[in-house]
Each structure stands twice: as structure tokens, then as C-alpha cells.
Design a binder for these strands. Structure first.
Lengths: 124, 124
DNA sequence: TATTGACTTGGAGTAAACTCTAGATGATAT
DNA sequence: ATATCATCTAGAGTTTACTCCAAGTCAATA
């Protein structure tokens, strides 16, 4: 798969795909003899993982660390799990923060609805 | 309330508090004759709102827009509700993204647990 | 074979959200 | 009154995560 195909499929710019590889957020991508990227299924698997994690707000730095550990081999299993666990905790915190904010927005919106419906602003 | 007290109470640096005010993410804070900030309850209410929304990932730009509208008066009620609604939608999307990522982390972690327990790496 | 067009790298540029610095001014304790 | 400490402003610097650019290389096509 060429970089333009991967870019299209995952809706990630070619620049960003190269960037992720350059900094090590994904392992080195397979190349043709000519040096052109030719993404394997494993490569795109990593892309998809990064996309998923980034969309949730994991730092690219955390992904770089994770990739580094996987490259290092089977001696890093525990360390990898700890890393993932840490990120998981963060996500749980983030879920809570978002729930709280949404709760508050819901309330505020309901008050605006009220005010817009009645024409009166019974405000805080 | 002085800026150092507010900073302590809400765990937001003094620099950030001034920054929020400077760019308009909160309305102008009450001052003493000397020009020193003396936060009222209303002021800290805004601080708390910003803290809540920022922790959920709302952009400061969105908060600036909201404050601008509230300053403009009662003619902006509808616009304000639309703004809040848009941010609410974003949060809902973010919740979903995080749930997906957490799901995936949960699975990965369970596999690491397995591998660490059995000593074998039954990998993908 | 010549010419497009896609792809390459290294490095510079950008946007968002702070964070820090310097020099001035305000408040407070001796 | 003076020294010390907090706070002030304007503006520069930092970090993160891209995004863009230039100049060169590879690949398919006329």
C-alpha cells in the first residue's frame, strides 16, 4: 500500500504519516528497493492503533515509548503493560472530566432553552 | 481573594490566571484601587467554569467566544446556546473516542497479563 | 528517452496553550 | 521610612503536534 492510499484510507495526511514514523510513534515502515514506503498489513495496524490512541488524547510521546519497548523485545512485557496501564488510568480520568463538563453544559443549555422559550432570563 | 489564593484553591498558576483574563477566557477581574486583582465570587465562578471546561478539552478559543457573547448582553442568548451545543457535541464525540481507545487498551492489557502470567506470548 | 507526477528527506514554520522574564509598582512588617 | 514581598504588565520563550517547503529521486507514460 502506498502512502497516498494509507493517507486516504485512515484520513491522516502523508506528512503526518511520515512524521509518526520519523519520531518512532510507529515502527519503520516496509520499503521498496527504491526506498518508497510500501505499507504492509502490520504497518497499517500500527497506523490504526496510533489513530485510535491519538483520537483519545494519548500523547505521541507515550506511543513512541510503547513502540520503543516493543522493538526491544520480550524482556519489556511488564514495562509495556505498566505503560498501557498508566495511559488507561489517564483515559479513565479524562472520561470523568468530560462527563462532568458535559453535565454542566447540559444544565447550562437547558437554562438557555428555558430563557429562549419563555423570553425571560431567570439567571444565576 | 488574591491571585495567589485563587491559584492555590483551583490549582491554576498565577500566570495562567492572568493569561485567561488577558485573552478574555474569563471576564475582567475586579481590582483594588491599587490595580491588584481581588477576585469576587463571580470571578472565581468563571475560573471554575474554565477549569472544568479546559479539563474536558474545550479550546480556550471557544471559552473566549462564550465570554464575548455574554459580555454583549441578552441579544446573544441563542448564539450562546448554539455555541454550548456545539461544544457539547464535541464532548460526546470525545467520549466515544476515549471509550474505544480504553476498550482497546483493556484488551491489550489483558493479553499482557496473560503473557506475564503464563510466561508464554501468544501474540497477534 | 523525456517528461510528468508521486515520493523522498531534512529542516523550517505554525497554532494552541501556556510559561517565564524583566522591570515597575503595590502592600506590609519593622 | 525602608526593606521585603506580592503583584503588575508587556513581551519573549517553550512544548506539543503537526504542517509546509525545497530540492532531489523514483516510477509510469507518451
Amino acid at each position: 500500500m502506498t502512502i497516498s492510499e494509507v493517507s486516504e484510507k485512515y484520513e491522516i495526511s502523508q506528512d503526518t504519516l511520515r512524521y509518526y514514523e520519523r519520531i518512532g510513534a510507529i515502527p519503520p515502515v516496509h520499503r521498496t528497493k527504491g526506498g518508497v514506503r510500501d505499507y504492509t498489513e502490520e504497518d497499517t495496524g500500527w497506523i490504526e492503533l496510533v489513530k485510535c490512541m491519538r483520537s483519545a488524547g494519548l500523547s505521541v510521546e507515550a506511543l513512541v515509548q510503547y513502540v520503543k519497548l516493543t522493538q526491544k523485545g520480550d524482556t519489556t512485557l511488564l514495562e509495556r503493560r505498566e505503560l498501557l496501564n498508566g495511559q488507561r488510568e489517564q483515559l479513565i480520568g479524562q472520561l470523568e472530566a468530560i462527563r462532568r463538563a458535559k453535565e454542566r453544559l447540559d444544565y447550562k443549555i437547558s437554562r438557555y432553552d428555558e430563557a429562549l422559550k419563555t423570553g425571560r432570563l431567570s439567571w444565576d
